[in-house]
């Protein structure tokens, strides 16, 4: 196996290179970008992010927990207040709403950490501080025989630098 590391200056070239690599069946690739660019994200993986599932589950858990908590606590020691029912639903919407947002937000954070693989860890071997400046990186793992094809493809997409490592 070989690894081809390419550096790009523009997101459009990077996205185009990723699309061509995918078309040729080179799926084992990693991209590095200094800022979010939807064209790169779509070229790499067009499916919707799973973070949305976390947000939804968090929000639904929050509203459920909010109402159940208030109803249970109000009924556990029933005190008549302002002539309202012990478990009066309209005023409970406020806390129910706040807990929807609170848990929705926390679950979104967990979603980011889990889906994005974020935890304190060692950085990838081919990661460079240039990717947190203004350059883009595309790292392709391919068979030795495909190296020249990948290299040509990258240069065809205006890659600034193409380096073959681990060959």
């Amino acid at each position: 196996m070989a690894t081809v590391v390419s550096i790009f200056e523009l997101p459009s070239n990077t996205a185009s290179a990723i699309r061509k690599l995918k078309d040729r069946g080179f799926d084992d690739l990693t991209t590095y970008s200094p800022a979010p660019f939807p064209e790169i994200e779509e070229a790499e993986d067009a499916s919707p992010s799973k973070v949305r599932v976390f947000t939804l589950v968090g929000g639904l858990s929050g509203v459920t927990l909010g109402f159940l908590m208030q109803i249970w606590m109000s009924l556990e020691w029933p005190i008549k207040i302002a002539g309202k029912a012990f478990a009066a639903i309209p005023p409970f919407w406020i806390v129910g709403f706040e807990l929807t947002i609170l848990l929705g937000g926390f679950f979104t954070l967990f979603g980011l950490l889990i889906v994005g693989g974020l935890y304190p860890r060692k950085l990838d071997k081919h990661y460079s501080s240039r990717f947190s400046a203004e350059e883009f990186g595309v790292v392709v793992h391919c068979e030795e025989r495909d190296v020249s094809e990948v290299e040509m493809l990258m240069r065809g997409e205006s890659a600034k630098e193409v380096t073959v490592v681990d060959s």
Binding site: T31, E44, K122
Partner: peptide, 11 residues
Amino acid sequence: GWQGTGPQWKA
């Protein structure tokens, strides 16, 4: 461990 990879930016 942020590196600005595609899945990270997407998430």
